[in-house]
């Protein structure tokens, strides 16, 4: 039974990796260059899906933390912690990819633009959330402290999303299938789903680690 479960998990991981590689290939080689940005625009197929999926991860943190506050079930705390860690990885990647994209298009690696600044704040808020968790040894106390924080810091996510409309920014407005050229929509969607599958797998496996850790702590 355990063996067949492990085989199914391996198969799902392989499928996700194959889909990810296919989406990356499609974005790099099958999508047309942009009229103004040329081939550099293809960075959108990694930068934007990473940002979207980081938002999804932080939404999971928000919902899980909120439910934990009501139910006090450790499942929700473990899920919040797992999603926060994966969200931090994706937000860090979004920032670095944005910097790499910004250099040839804006002429700078970094500028204190509203979108960039609010995203950097988002990154450090969740790094702070994870740091706070790592400092508290007792898991019940850790969960009680982390849950309200997981709810409150989510407030920055809509600010990041709307920053390009609320302030005059160098960053373009939100990229979505409705705002990009129809020839680029398929690549954007493929990569968004590819990174969504990666996100789900990462959260699932990070959750398994948290679960094993909790079981070990209880056994001591």
């Amino acid at each position: 039974m355990q063996n067949s479960k492990s085989k199914i998990q391996s198969f799902i991981v392989l499928m996700a990796v194959a889909f990810f590689l296919f989406a990356q290939y499609w974005g790099l080689f099958k999508s047309p260059p942009d009229q103004l940005m040329g081939h550099v625009q293809k960075l959108m197929y990694v930068h934007v899906p990473c940002a979207w999926n980081a938002f999804i991860a932080f939404f999971v943190v928000f919902i899980s933390s909120f439910i934990y506050l009501i139910r006090k079930n450790p499942f929700w705390d473990r899920l919040a912690a797992s999603a926060a860690e994966v969200g931090v990885v994706l937000t860090g990647l979004t920032l670095i990819l944005g910097s790499i994209w910004g250099r040839p298009t804006w002429g700078v690696w970094w500028t204190w633009d509203a979108r960039l600044t609010t995203t950097a704040i988002l990154f450090f808020l969740y790094v702070g959330y994870l740091t706070m968790r790592s400092f508290v040894g007792d898991k019940d106390r850790r969960a009680r402290l982390a849950a309200p924080l997981g709810v409150i810091i989510f407030l920055n996510v809509p600010i990041v999303y709307m920053s390009v409309r609320w302030w005059r920014t160098l960053h373009q407005v939100q990229s979505s299938p409705s705002t990009v050229d129809p020839n680029m929509v398929l690549s954007l969607r493929l990569n968004a789903f590819a990174i969504l599958f990666v996100l789900i797998l990462f959260i699932y496996h990070r959750y398994q680690i948290a679960l094993l850790k909790d079981k070990q702590e209880e056994a001591l």
Binding site: Q35, G38, P104
Partner: peptide, 12 residues
């Protein structure tokens, strides 16, 4: 149009 820029694409 931005010419080249492949090094940024590869790096990303």
């Amino acid at each position: 149009t931005i010419q080249g820029g492949y090094e940024f694409l590869v790096a990303g």
